[in-house]
Design a protein around this nucleic acid. Structure first.
Lengths: 217, 217
DNA sequence: ACCTGAACACCGTTCAAGT
DNA sequence: ACCTGAACACCGTTCAAGT
């Protein structure tokens, strides 16, 4: 009945299930279906079985590609982190000639652009209960970004760009501010703060800029 | 065999299961068992059945007191929020005579004291995916605190205590900073930032103080 | 090599039946 | 009034068997 199955188009694996899957890139299809399921139902509603069904495959099939549900979600987080790093690298490249504080700003804007543009990915990365942060590439990647931020703040102080205070504490504060703002936006808290006039990214950048102005010399 | 059952001690419902429960305060016992289970296993491992077993009751019993698992966790969050409000009220009472910026600081310290002292409760309150934030008392309580913070920042500006910038943005930044710091601490990120010298509460307050100093006139 | 489909021990939730 | 215990439709995960 289906002896001449055509494989699904090389990279675009997000169409309607198409009854028979067999080969094709199941791994990537599962990752994409997981993201779509989180978008549609929320992260706590994700089940491996539902993802398998979306992709048209049996309940056990995903376990040939991911040893556990946690591993599946961790893989989604790793893809998310890769995209974040790209966004940050792009922003940093564009700000290469500027001073340390402006490079710090560029990094922050890269982060906000990514987080508000990919809320599901941000959510997965920041939901530690459900991913294996320590045992994956996530920790190293995260530490890289942290080190870059801390270094910039130190440079900013050395260049006399900071008004006062400990650069490490400023770096931590900036990170916490970024994390908290992204989270508040995604949790839908902006309307309560009367922050619905501008578009959210503009608003977040405005707040971040005010933070930078506060610590600047 | 057990015709003369003694009811469990009035309020202290956290002892070893004691085979037969029947009356007693099952509702409160379930809430406490839920907190202990999260402490021991993490929030994603909580199951109504496990909570029921901890308390020595059949799988269906909790549903007489909470319509759903979400309702159970939301009730835990509501108790948590009540304690947060107490902590904040206490801190504000102690700072009643001071200026708006110092009262803002007191509120912040109340929050940090609560969050670092009750990490499980903070985690439950901030895990939106698993509680009913909008449809409970949580939203109103949260809005109260937000309004107090925003009011203080406005007063601080009116009293000439702020160096520059929009007080609403400062208020949002302070909230995001507080949320982000508590979260970073609970996620175990402090060691990576070389923040393990002081005790965490001291460290967090130090960073918060530096933020306040940055925006102060 | 990759997938199916049955199986196991779990879940949340409901509901008749017990006390 | 409150709880039990069986039942239902789910889940994560494993594994023999198929192609």
């Amino acid at each position: 009945m289906c002896s001449s199955r055509i494989p699904p188009a090389e990279t675009s694996v997000g169409e309607q299930p198409g009854r028979r899957y067999h080969h094709g890139n199941l791994r990537q299809a599962l990752l994409e279906a997981t993201v779509r399921l989180i978008e549609a139902q929320g992260i706590d509603q994700v089940s491996v079985r539902a993802v398998a069904k979306m992709v048209g495959v049996s309940p056990g099939a995903p376990f040939r590609h991911f040893p556990s549900k946690t591993a599946l979600l961790t893989a989604v987080a790793e893809q998310a982190m890769d995209r974040l790093k790209e966004e940050i690298d792009k922003a940093l490249a564009a700000a290469a000639g500027e001073n340390a504080l402006m490079r710090y700003r560029a990094l922050g804007i890269g982060f906000f652009t990514w987080a508000l543009g990919n809320p599901v990915h941000f959510q997965v990365i920041s939901t530690r209960a459900v991913i294996d942060f320590e045992g994956s590439s996530l920790k190293a990647r995260n530490d890289e970004i942290r080190a870059v931020m801390a270094g910039m703040m130190r440079d900013a102080q050395a260049e006399g760009l900071l008004r006062q205070g400990d650069p490490v504490r400023h770096a931590v504060a900036g990170r916490a501010l970024g994390y908290g703002l992204a989270r508040m936006y995604i949790d839908g808290q902006f309307p309560s703060w009367d922050l619905e006039n501008l578009n959210p990214l503009q608003e977040v950048i405005g707040i971040f800029d005010q933070f930078i102005a506060s610590i600047a010399a």
